[in-house]
Simulated assay, not measured.
Amino acid sequence: MELRYLRYFIVAAEELNLTRAAERLFIAQPPLTRQIKQLEDELGVQLFIRKPRGLELTIGGKHFLHQAYGIINRVDASIKSTRQVALHRKKTFSIGFVPSVFYGQLPLMVRRLRRNKNLEIVLHELKTQEQIEALKSGKIDVGFGRIHIEDPDVDQKVLFNEPLIAALPDAHPLTRRVPCLQQLSEMPMVAFPAGPAPNFSDMTLGLFHREGLQIEIIQQVNDLQTALALVASGMGFALVPEQVKKLHREGVEYVSVADDNIRTPVIISRRTNDNPNAVMRLVNTILTEMVNNRLRGHYP
């Protein structure tokens, strides 16, 4: 199967109109129609339902579109990394991360990896679900997040569980004590991130719901910096991972939460059944050392 067939199919599936697809591909419509038909014959599956006003993907077509995206993305990533190696004689190692995990020990891992002059480290800020797709497409080699997502192509492991703390306006009375969830629930909450579930916001809200507590969401935002800015302005409080307290923000004070088991995991995601290369083995060694340091109470 030729890669151009996949690219033609993807454009046709996106446009759902052969005339517009042909225009995007800078080819005539009849050859595009023939090549789509040849692809269907080769697969033994009808990919489109032809209608008077355009095309509609079949169930098989929708499934194949997902697979085609993955194949093309992996090929493009391989081409890019090969060119980088040829030009710089460096191996590229790409890391996906959610911002809240990069205020603690993980930057130390990046720093140690960067000591290798033949290794180029590329960082991608991605939500956990985006990391899963990026791993499958080959865009990243490893991901660090906080949400467990079932996917047979990706292996996830909890590195450690981290306490959650409350970010409060610095003049608030609760900064002078160790508040419990009941006391926090009497304040408006700034939740993050916004977007599709599952996410960190769902996890923090679930802590209150499990205790039968109602919580008012005053604002839902996409990133931690915006959440802290709203806390500093006095709009409410936010629950954040403990390592975020390294991020000093004027007008914000961080306090522990009295309730037990107020924790959030730090999860590493890797492709299932990938044979670890030399770089991944080094990553695993560094992470084992970091986790052991946390267990002994040795923080960076």
Rank of each mutant, 00 (worst) to 15 (best):
E2K: 14
E2F: 01
R4Q: 13
L6W: 08
F9P: 00
I10A: 10
I10V: 12
V11Y: 05
A13W: 03
A13F: 07
L18F: 15
R20K: 15
A22N: 12
E23I: 07
R24K: 14
F26C: 06
T33V: 01
T33S: 15
Q38Y: 09
D41K: 07
D41G: 01
G44D: 06
G44M: 08
L47E: 01
R50I: 05
R50A: 09
P52T: 00
P52I: 07
R53S: 12
L55T: 00
I59C: 00
G60V: 00
G60P: 02
G61H: 07
L65D: 02
Q67A: 09
Y69E: 12
G70W: 04
R74V: 01
V75M: 14
V75T: 08
A77H: 10
A77W: 05
A86C: 05
L87N: 12
H88C: 07
R89E: 12
K90Y: 02
K91M: 11
T92C: 14
V98L: 06
P99R: 08
G104E: 03
M109E: 00
R115I: 01
R115P: 05
N116R: 13
N116H: 11
K117C: 02
N118M: 11
L119D: 03
H124K: 09
Q129V: 07
E130I: 02
Q131E: 08
I132G: 01
E133I: 05
E133K: 11
A134G: 04
L135F: 01
L135V: 04
K139G: 00
K139F: 02
I140S: 09
V142Q: 11
F144L: 14
F144N: 04
F144I: 09
D151K: 09
P152R: 06
D155K: 15
Q156C: 05
K157T: 13
K157H: 14
N161D: 14
I165M: 11
A171M: 06
H172G: 06
R176C: 04
C180Y: 04
L181A: 09
L184E: 06
E186V: 00
P188R: 03
M189V: 03
A191K: 08
F192K: 08
P193L: 03
A194M: 04
A194E: 05
P196S: 15
N199T: 03
N199Y: 12
F200T: 10
D202H: 15
M203K: 12
H209M: 13
R210M: 13
E211Q: 15
L213S: 12
I215M: 15
I217D: 07
I218A: 15
Q220E: 13
N222Q: 13
L224I: 10
A227C: 08
L230D: 05
V231I: 08
S233L: 14
F237Y: 14
L239H: 09
V240H: 11
P241L: 02
L247K: 10
R249S: 10
E250C: 07
S256E: 15
D259E: 12
R263G: 07
P265G: 13
P265I: 04
T272Q: 15
N275W: 02
N277E: 08
L282T: 10
L282F: 09
L282R: 15
L287G: 05
M290L: 14
V291N: 01
L295F: 11
L295W: 07
H298T: 02
H298I: 08
P300K: 00
P300M: 00
